[in-house]
Amino acid sequence: MKVLIIALARNNQINPNLANVLTAAHKISSVCDVLVLGAADLSKVTSYSGITSIYHAANLTSNDLLASNLTESLANIAKGYTHVLMASDSAGKDLLPRVAGFLDMGQISDVLAISSPNIFKKPMYAGNIIAEVESFDEIKFLTIRTICFDAVASSGNAAVVNKELLVDTDNKIQFVSEKLSVIETVGLASAKRIVSGGRSLGSKESFDEVIGGFAVKIGAAIGASKAAVEAGYANNDCQVGQTGKIVAPELYIAVGVSGAVQHIAGMKDSKKVLAINNDPNAQIFEYADYGYVGDLFEVIPEIMRGL
């Protein structure tokens, strides 16, 4: 058994969720290589425990890093492994199924538990259902739901081997630009606390003032329901849920969020949930540890005064 984890650099950084993917990898094998694509500071990565070798293909542009351009070379590298893992984030979801499909192999998305080297658990129907599946493929391609695995310890000292990667840039696709969200710098996926707002905020101004103000006060990241995103109160990258981010903070505060299954899908693994809603029958209370029934526009300022 030999595992490869692929990690893409963005802005010279490697997502710390790599440490969680490593824990998943170690449930499969103790032989575990990491392939880093793109220029990045690897000082943290080298300290992660349980890495056999780190291969670093640093000399890649944003254009080279597009899934369409990487497929063939990654498919060739994958052939040397029994399992190829990526975090189930926007890079992993984009790239790994393409490499698997190119090799005529299947892929398992959002693995949340590893029962054996070929049996995995994954969510279906917005996480209402957990399926256990067996893969028959020669190489198992898995994207890992990182909130379901702890981060490995930082007691490692892996060596970095430089790697040349041939990228297939036949100009069928070109990277033009990227716009990174300011809010994301607080890191929704790794935040300890999240304040999430819904449609009930009524306007972008109220959302920024009430949810934004509350979040700053308690050092929380900002989340939102799809309805709030659709209404333009919050950015798309704040969305929590089936089609947004999957989060598991220590404390999730849902403010004026109804608790639709698709929203619950993204936050139900939070350690503690506090829900504030003016409807005592709101579904969100069924998934909350603590509830307060009241008008958010009165309740939130009152809470902030009490803090």
Partner: peptide
């Protein structure tokens, strides 16, 4: 088939909500 569904289970995790009536408790 490249994979097989072994079984499915209910993934829902309902909680027992403790309703607070005093905002100090929320704080």
């Amino acid at each position: 088939a490249h994979s097989r569904l072994i079984s499915v289970t209910d993934g829902e995790v309902k909680k027992q909500c403790k309703f607070l009536t005093n905002l100090n408790d929320v704080v």
